[in-house]
Design a protein around this nucleic acid. Structure first.
Length: 466
RNA sequence: GGCGGCAUAGCCAAGCGGUAAGGCAUGGGUCUGCAACACCCUUACCACCGGUUCGAUUCCGGUUGCCGCCUCCA
């Protein structure tokens, strides 16, 4: 079955057919780097990292590009306030971004282009738009002439008349039309700037993505993604710029993720109701956070609260426990026969359910349901008297593969305990054999305080860190 | 005003024409020396009112409530 993707452009799920068979060109709008990212900022990174992983799991060769906006008003303001160079500030927060998002299990993009590395390309691009009549210079600024782009509004499904009513800046001295937007902004006194045919200045916000996507992926890309709030005006403007430039479709599939809310309201820097990834991961395992995000379809809002995250933690723990117990069983029991094919088949059924869910517009909530079914199967298998390493292996491999697609690889807990702890576990076993349960319970309590939880099974005592 | 989303058990969340997946929590039971892990059982008139249909949580119209974009924003 082909993967179905909900395309904002058509407002429908469509079969995903990349331009070139087996290859996917994907562009995800990245952050403006003037602060640590909050968990709302992290959602698209997680969501589209998962999309990428699944496409790769399905055998596609994905080229993934995600930019950094490393020059704009907010950055300049922040740098001024901190008395820091723009470049220093952005470098710092780009590093922080990689750390935060890495902790959340997101892979780096193949290319992380930065605006400041593409100024020349941007100037060239804007010049062509002017030549083609899609842009005009005005007092050192350059604006996009929306009136000349016929498809303006097609992504957000708005007519230009309707858009005009809500436009912030009236047309007037500088702009021909209220909907026109800046491609190039003249520098103010003392601001970081670059030379251009229109004087010293810097790029407007939208132009960078058009330029960098084209530079790194070509005129047309398969998937362009970002947060819901980028649909208008950012992505609408990107389409206007790019399609005016090339005359070709800019992106075939537009994907937009929903927000993370606090008390049912959008988390945003301007509202001040945000939680920084940098801070929260000191209290919450970042993998739990990712698991929590995965529990909801990417286009739907997620309400964030400590309680909900704790519930999610319990769910994830259940999966981890089953996985570790499978490993323990594999390590402690030889092949003892028993059913094989029927179990392999049951695992395959859940794997198929997982794939079916992911094929359907990356429905991670349903994908997780399949993983929970797999968890139950594993737990049932684990209490069988006879197990086979082939089956255990297949369970373990499948768990690893599927959780890997969700960016939730299992931590390796096979690391050894120190000798003293080993000795205590051994002593406890001996005590139990002698039915000296006081001593055995004492040891169990003692280890528990050290964060080591013991569980007795027919195959011996297994331990985990609690 | 324009465009859009959401409303499903105590909580979270799928489903979207044939009488409701999954998770968390609760209660009961089984397993265990006791635990833990685990397993079994337990809980829903799908916001409201109309319509279409043999049949609607699912489609259409309307109502109410909440949220978002139209302004920097993931």
């Amino acid at each position: 079955m082909t993967i179905q993707i909900y395309n904002t452009l058509t407002r429908k799920k469509e079969p995903f057919i990349p331009m070139e068979e087996g290859k996917v060109k994907m562009y995800v709008c990245g952050p403006t780097v003037y602060n640590y990212i909050h968990i709302g900022n992290a959602r698209p990174v997680i969501a589209f990292d998962t999309v990428r992983r699944y496409l790769e799991y399905r055998g596609f060769d994905v080229t993934y590009v995600s930019n950094f906006t490393d020059v704009d008003d907010k950055i300049i303001k922040a740098a001024n306030e901190l008395g820091e160079e723009v470049g220093e500030l952005t470098e710092r927060f780009i590093n922080a971004f990689h750390e935060d998002v890495g902790a959340l299990g997101c892979n780096k993009a193949d290319v992380h282009p930065r605006v400041t590395e593409h100024i020349g390309d941007i100037v060239d691009f804007v010049s062509v738009l002017i030549d083609k009549g899609f842009a005009y210079e005005s007092q050192g600024d350059v604006y996009y002439r929306t009136r000349n782009f016929e498809g303006y509004g097609k992504l957000s499904h708005q007519s230009t008349d309707e858009l005009k009513i809500g436009a912030r800046i009236e047309e007037g001295i500088k702009k021909e039309n209220a909907l026109d937007f800046a491609l190039w902004k003249a520098a103010k006194e003392g601001e970081i700037s670059w030379e251009s045919p229109w004087g010293a200045g810097r790029p407007g916000w939208h132009i960078e993505c058009s330029v960098m996507a084209r530079e790194h992926l070509g005129d047309t890309i398969d998937i362009h993604a970002g947060g819901q709030d980028l649909t208008f005006p950012h992505h609408e403007n990107e389409i206007a710029q790019s399609e005016a430039m090339t005359g070709k479709t800019f992106a075939n599939y537009w994907m937009h993720n929903g927000y993370i809310n606090i008390d049912n309201e959008k988390m945003s820097k301007s509202l001040g109701n945000f939680v920084l990834v940098h801070d929260i991961q000191k209290q919450i395992d970042p993998k739990v956070l990712r698991f929590f995000v995965m529990s909801v379809h990417y286009r739907h809002p997620i309400n964030f609260s400590q309680n909900l995250v704790e519930s999610a933690a319990n769910g994830l723990e259940r999966i981890r426990t089953a996985y570790n117990n499978l490993k323990h069983r594999l390590a402690t029991s030889a092949d003892l026969g028993g059913q094989k094919d029927s179990w392999l088949h049951k695992v395959d059924e859940q794997k198929a359910a997982f794939e079916q869910a992911m094929d359907d517009d990356f429905n991670t909530a349903n994908a997780l349901a399949a993983i929970f079914e797999l968890t139950k199967l594993a737990n049932v298998y684990l209490v069988e008297k006879n197990t086979q390493s082939d089956v255990l292996d297949y369970f373990i491999k499948t768990f690893g593969d599927l959780m890997g697609v969700l960016g939730l690889p299992f931590d390796d807990v096979t690391g050894l305990l120190d000798a003293a702890v080993d000795a205590l576990i051994e002593e406890r076993l001996e005590a139990r054999r002698n039915r000296a349960f006081n001593r055995s319970d004492e040891i169990r309590d003692e280890l528990k305080e050290k964060g080591i939880i013991l569980e007795d099974t027919a195959q011996g005592t297994r331990w985990k860190r609690g």
